[in-house]
Computed example of a mutant assay.
Amino acid sequence: MTIKSAVVESFAEYSQFSSLKEFNNHFEMWMADKKRFFSKGELIGLKRLARFAAKVPGVANAKIGTVLKAIYGEYGEMGISRSTFKRMILKASDIGIFTVYETARKNGSQSSNLYVFNRFPMNELPDGDQLSHQYKTIIPSETNIKKKNKREEKAVEEQSSEITGVKPLAEQAPEQHLFVSDRVPSDFVNLVKYFFPAAKTIEEFWRMNKVAAYSNNYEQETDLVLSVSLDSFKQLVRKLKSKVEVKNPVAYFTGILNKKFQERYFEELYDLVVY
Rank of each mutant, 00 (worst) to 15 (best):
F205V: 01
V59T: 03
K21C: 04
F188A: 08
E263A: 10
I256N: 06
H26K: 04
Y14Q: 15
V116M: 11
F196G: 01
H133E: 14
N61W: 01
Y14M: 14
G41D: 07
N107F: 07
R48W: 11
H26V: 02
V225H: 05
L224M: 03
V211T: 15
V225L: 02
F179K: 12
D94I: 04
Q235Y: 09
K63F: 14
A62H: 04
N149W: 06
E74V: 15
A213S: 13
N118H: 03
G45C: 02
F120S: 08
S161I: 04
S39G: 06
K91W: 04
F179T: 02
S81I: 00
N25C: 08
Q220E: 14
K40S: 14
N107M: 02
K35I: 03
E124V: 06
R207Q: 10
V116H: 07
S93V: 05
F117S: 12
P185V: 11
F27R: 01
V246T: 00
A32P: 00
P121N: 01
Q235F: 08
A62Q: 10
N24C: 10
H177Q: 07
A170T: 07
R207N: 09
K40P: 05
V116T: 03
S83I: 01
K239H: 07
G128W: 15
S229F: 00
S232C: 09
Y115S: 10
Y270A: 15
S141H: 14
V228M: 05
E268N: 13
L125Y: 10
Q134M: 14
R238F: 02
N248Y: 03
T164Y: 01
L178G: 01
K47A: 12
S161M: 07
Y265G: 10
D127L: 10
K40G: 05
F17S: 02
